[in-house]
Amino acid sequence: MTASILTVDDSASIRLTTRVALSNAGYQVTEAVDGLDGISKLKGGRYDLIVTDLNMPGMDGLTMIRELRKLPAHMGVPVIFLTTESDAGIKQEAKAAGATGWLTKPFDPESLVKIVRKVLGK
């Protein structure tokens, strides 16, 4: 069965790059434009992994993860941050909120696929 991945980013070009890389690797991809849209999609579906930006209008990635962890069906879903931030303090805050991994933009699509495979164990 194909893993279902929710990508959350306010940048259309990042969503496109992420979708193409993950789709080409055989994953089913759903896109959200910010954290609010991400939470809405999470409430309406089931995902094996979430890839999210940190800095977004509406609802940022950290707030989205905190809200996500309140939803019983999604408490254990792994989350990978895909962001321009590289500050150790922010990484620690993300980990405390429930993030599983971190990839800094700009990113190599192959690196994203490798991390996704590692996190999903596939």
Rank of each mutant, 00 (worst) to 15 (best):
N24L: 07
M1P: 11
M1V: 04
G89Y: 02
P72K: 12
R15C: 02
D34L: 10
D34E: 11
I65V: 12
A73L: 09
D48H: 11
A21F: 05
A73C: 04
L112F: 06
A21S: 07
T7Q: 00
V113A: 13
T84S: 03
T18H: 11
N24I: 02
S40T: 13
T52I: 12
I90G: 07
G58D: 03
K70T: 15
I14P: 10
K122D: 13
A25G: 01
A12F: 06
S11I: 01
T18R: 08
T83G: 10
D60K: 08
V20I: 15
A21I: 09
F107V: 14
L22C: 14
T30P: 03
A97V: 05
A99W: 07
G58L: 07
V29F: 11
L36Y: 09
L82P: 01
K91W: 10
G44M: 08
N55A: 12
V51W: 12
G101W: 03
P106W: 04
P106E: 07
G76M: 15
D37V: 08
V51R: 10
S23H: 02
G101P: 00
K91G: 05
F107E: 09
G61C: 11
K91E: 07
A73Q: 08
L36R: 15
T30K: 01
L112S: 03
Y47L: 05
M1N: 05
L16A: 09
G58Y: 09
V79N: 10
T52A: 13
D37A: 05
S23R: 00
A12K: 09
R69C: 02
L112I: 08
L42K: 00
G98E: 13
I5P: 06
G44H: 06
A12V: 14
M59G: 12
S11N: 02
A73T: 07
G98I: 15
A73D: 14
K114Y: 07
P72E: 10
M1E: 09
I115C: 10
V116D: 14
G101N: 10
V113W: 11
E31P: 15
D87H: 10
L120D: 01
G121R: 03
Q92Y: 05
P57N: 15
E93P: 13
P109G: 11
